[in-house]
Simulated scan of single mutants.
Amino acid sequence: MVATVLSGVLVLGTAACEGGSEAEAQTIRIGMITNTQGPFEPPGSELRDGFQLYLDMRGGQLGGHPVELIVADEGYEAAVSIESATKLLEQDRVSAITGIINGGNVAAILPLINQHKVPLVGALGRPALTDVTYVWHTNLISVEPGVAMAPFVKQEVKDGTVFAIGPDFQGGRDELRGFVDTFTRLGGRLANPDGKAVFTPSPVTEDFRPYLDQIAASGADAIYCFFDAKSSIDFVKQYAESPVSHLPLYAAGFVTEPASLGEQGDTAEGIYNGLNYSPDLDNAANREFVAAWSAAYPGRVPTSIVMASYDAAAVLDRAIAAAGTNPSPQAINTAIAGLGQLTSPRGPWQFAKSTHSPIQKWYLRQVRRDGRALTNVVVSELGTLGG
């Protein structure tokens, strides 16, 4: 597969079709908005690779149509995402958009999505939205990791206090709000000043020592955090060398995903974290997915981001097939609404009618040693969220 860069847009390839009716099938263009450079490039590559894996497993087709996947840069500022979405919708005339790392950029491009009536099948997190007519997400709502973990943390710390910390961008604020609101509603107490989470500069904070000193001074009995891949590495390693290294560290599952875990090493061992997926889940869809991923990307462990982007392709596959011979974006959107329960590596799930996000199980994981390697092992279910 040859990648070609055209005017800042990466075209990952158009599958060739051979013979008869397949040769006559309409080519479907799918736009992917994701980070192609900078600190968010690692999750950006996971979004691309997860979607592409599904395409490769099905001969480059979705719903019986050859697919052209066009990748545009998300950037960090909303203006970059808006520019990319405008080009995909008005010049490339895509039938659907997927990807998007920063949930704030979902809200930024929403007017364009609604104007063009093209479905957005996002594959990471997003904030709550009042209008989700054309917005669907295959991963999670940004508050949910914290909501899922809060009851477990409250059970563990009992009457102790917890210091909550994360990055100052839309996703980080949502993640911490989910934890803080749920934890305090359950009777939990925060060690944070004024009972509010502490936020670190984003996209990059490299020196967390002042924040760790602040945690030490607060008298906290435990820590809860969410960070992106690069910051997760720095925070966990510096935590392990800090005056609060003896405190239990609880986290959203993104903190200990494989891209970070390899760098964190022994400092991450024992961390409890919550997420909607783990590669050790024992079901047929996950075994197929993990085997295909391992063959395509040796040495890389599939993450929840990879899984959700793979599932975004699966959603579009079924919807395009159901939308008729020459599916319009509106017909694809209508078909997504009628999909019902989906089979996935995470287990069965379906879109909630009110939020267009998954109704799904959440899992408590702990970083444990598996031979020489550290991995996230599923300990138990945290419950079902969504709806």
Rank of each mutant, 00 (worst) to 15 (best):
V5R: 07
V5G: 03
S7Q: 08
G8S: 05
V9G: 07
L12I: 00
A23V: 00
T27Y: 00
I28P: 05
G31F: 02
M32K: 05
M32Y: 02
T34V: 03
G38C: 05
P39N: 02
S45N: 04
E46Y: 04
L47P: 01
D49H: 09
D49G: 07
F51A: 08
F51L: 04
L53Q: 07
L53M: 13
Y54W: 08
L55N: 09
G59I: 04
L62I: 10
P66Q: 13
V67I: 13
L69Q: 09
I70Q: 11
D73E: 12
E74Y: 03
G75V: 02
V80F: 04
S81Y: 07
E83Q: 15
Q91C: 02
R93K: 15
R93V: 02
S95E: 02
S95M: 05
I100P: 13
I100G: 12
N105R: 13
A108G: 11
L110T: 15
P111I: 14
L112F: 11
L112Y: 10
L112G: 10
I113V: 15
A123M: 08
L124P: 01
P127V: 11
A128R: 11
A128K: 10
L129C: 10
D131E: 12
V132I: 08
V132M: 14
T133D: 00
W136L: 03
N139K: 12
L140N: 09
I141T: 15
G146H: 12
P151W: 13
F152Y: 14
E156S: 14
G160V: 02
T161K: 11
F163Y: 06
F163E: 02
G166F: 03
P167G: 00
P167V: 08
D168N: 06
G171E: 05
G172C: 09
G172T: 11
R173Q: 15
R173K: 15
D181N: 08
T182Q: 14
T184Y: 03
R185Q: 09
L186T: 01
L186K: 04
L186G: 02
R189K: 00
R189A: 05
R189Q: 02
A191P: 00
N192P: 07
N192H: 09
D194G: 00
K196H: 11
P203S: 04
Y211I: 09
A217C: 04
I223K: 08
C225K: 07
A229P: 00
K230N: 06
S231I: 01
V236K: 01
K237H: 10
E241F: 09
E241T: 12
S242L: 03
P243V: 07
V244K: 00
S245I: 01
S245A: 14
L247N: 06
F254L: 15
G262D: 10
G262V: 05
E263Q: 05
N276C: 01
N276P: 01
P279S: 03
A284C: 09
F289L: 05
F289W: 01
V290L: 12
W293I: 12
T303F: 13
S304T: 10
I305C: 13
V306S: 10
M307R: 11
A322C: 05
A322V: 13
G324A: 14
Q330I: 11
Q330D: 09
I336H: 03
T343F: 15
S344N: 12
Q350Y: 06
F351K: 05
A352R: 14
K353F: 09
S357Y: 15
P358T: 14
R365Y: 14
R365T: 13
Q366F: 14
D370T: 02
G371H: 11
G371N: 13
T375C: 08
V379K: 08
G383L: 01
T384F: 03
T384Y: 06
G386C: 13
